[in-house]
Design a protein around this nucleic acid. Structure first.
Lengths: 340, 340
DNA sequence: CTGTTAGCGCCTTCAT
DNA sequence: ATGAAGGCGCTAACAG
């Protein structure tokens, strides 16, 4: 069927060793034989068999990406960054979808490791057990984590959460808000923890105390976020401002606000983590902290390839800054509207 | 490093053949030896090397997906369907991004074929040369095309375009519209052609003639769609209704309408191909033809696995029906507002 | 019911 | 400056 290296060797009248070396440029070969070999390659349309190579070298020239959810634009945007960075280097991308399920995630990781990916980039699911990453380390496949920090000595590409959130929440406070709710994120996750920290920091920096009951965590899909928001506004002392922990949450929150006929920022100020492509189409768009998602992907590739080349380098944690897209959704709190 | 089948054989005191057969259930082995072998496997944590297997069997238990653009929700949703269907069958998914570039697409296909994917699912880029698919056929890898039809004898998973569009445009006509513009799609593509056909059909079915100048094709990103829409409404005889050929177009069109302060459906009726997750957040949501994207993916898997199992089966073309999500964006045309 | 053995296609050490 | 040959881990005849 397909031509093999041996065929090329026979046709060009040299040994397989020479052909191999010509292909890989791995030792000196005289120009004339190079010529011959290349002609044979061209005429046969020979392409090396990556599996034979993988078997021999225990290297696959591929890296795996485990997406927490391929349907989430965050994952796909990171993936885009990864694919782009990888392409120029001749690496193949294997993708597995964890679908927000830790069990599937583990399966996915194993499947990829089994495939001898030279490295692994993982966007952990919402409730991944750090232990699995320790296991990965033992397996010896370079792993880079994105999005969520784990307290392990691993390469990680993260975004800066504390200060960025503090800045936005600070804007709310400075506008006069004193009841700023936070919606979304799973308790215990670094992103959640850090963004919460930013929320608190904004308060304490101004000598204010924040009402922890305004933080609705452990909400991790749009419809839950919607209900959480509805409940927040059903309370006696309703918030005057809202901060969304992520794009998915924002969708639910916006639905709730729309149902409640609350106009941004007249009735409620709103800002969110993650930028949203269509947000400017709303009558009242939302100020967002846009994550540099594609950069997250390309940085992860950078880290993983560096480690592949030199497994002994110290682990690095890269923090990328989100950028603030001000769309005027933060204003002064409404006056004298304590009740509906 | 890693345990091999030979190790397992030695430990359990049987031959490699037996171990192989135990693993693959490929010939009878006595319960007692099965037992021994499995214990050895368990104790060593042995996992077969997929590349050795691929090399030997010329089969990789993986299928490749070439996405026209991993950033497009259409692609990712199809991919979700593929990943889900594949998972239950133990196949791995290799993904490559063509990024709407035919040259990259070809590279991607070659890279995947080289990796011995057992099958290939391709969502063609906007301007793919059908010839490349003929070449694929020659290579002998089962290929399933999704989204865009090609006039070749290949497995394809498509959606029904003509009648669905005809129905929606028919609604517009029945509401009294006589100048219904169409925006988006590359001329020559089956999706474009078929959707255009639906647009025409709706007219001719009612004995009406359609104004071809109201079809703005060869528009394939949001900003172009936006400009195209602006131009449409700058014309003397502006349209009273608009049909968008896809989700990406819709984004641009909505931006333009918003800029022009045209309210749906008061000033202009609007409907679109592809559903959009956030569309209900708009003050004036849009009636959409939702493609069953995940089903497209799972059907493609079905087809490709069938063909892998039996390469001789006749090629099948599956047409899936989009579902109409009526959101009331079609109304009577405005009266006496011929000029701005 | 189980074992022996020859490769799949490639790289790489050892020779020359 | 180039060859010969072994083996990566696995499967599948073929041979009991």
């Amino acid at each position: 069927m397909s031509t093999s290296l041996a065929d090329v060797a026979r046709i060009s009248g040299v040994s397989t060793a020479t052909v191999s070396h010509v292909i890989n440029g791995t030792r000196y070969v005289s120009p004339s034989t190079i010529e011959k070999v290349q002609r044979a390659i061209a005429s046969t349309g020979y392409r090396p068999n990556p599996y034979a190579r993988a078997l021999r070298t225990a290297t696959s020239e591929s890296i795996g990406f485990v997406a927490s959810d391929v349907a989430n634009t965050y994952s796909t945007s990171v993936m885009r960054g990864i694919a782009g960075a990888l392409r120029t280097r001749g690496y193949t991308l294997l993708v597995a979808n964890a679908d927000e399920d830790p069990a599937l995630e583990r399966e996915a990781i194993e499947a990829l490791v089994e495939r001898m990916v030279d490295g692994l980039i993982v966007a952990p699911t919402t409730s991944t057990d750090p232990i699995s990453f320790e296991q990965i380390e033992e397996i010896g496949v370079p792993v880079v984590l994105v999005d969520r920090a784990v307290p392990l000595d691993l390469d990680q590409v993260l975004v800066e959460n504390v200060d960025s959130v503090a800045e936005v929440v600070g804007q709310m406070l400075d506008a006069g808000h004193r009841r700023i709710a936070v919606v979304g994120g799973r308790a215990g996750h670094s992103t959640t923890t850090e963004r919460m920290q930013g929320w608190r920091k904004a308060h304490t920096d101004r000598g204010l105390v924040c009402d922890e009951s305004l933080a609705v965590l452990d909400v991790f899909d749009a419809s839950r976020a919607r209900h959480a928001t509805e409940r927040l506004f059903a309370r006696e002392n309703r918030p005057t401002a809202l901060f969304s922990m992520s794009n998915v949450m924002s969708l639910g929150i916006l639905r709730a606000l729309s149902d409640l006929r609350l106009v941004i920022p007249r009735d409620v100020s709103f800002a969110a983590f993650d930028d949203i492509e269509w947000i400017d189409l709303l009558d009242h768009p939302v100020t967002c902290l846009a994550q540099p998602t594609e950069e997250v992907g390309s940085n992860a590739v950078e880290l993983v390839l560096t480690r592949i080349a030199n497994p002994a380098v110290e682990h690095r944690v890269v923090r990328l800054a989100p950028s603030l897209c001000d769309r005027g959704s933060i204003a002064e709190p409404p006056r004298g509207r304590r009740t509906v």
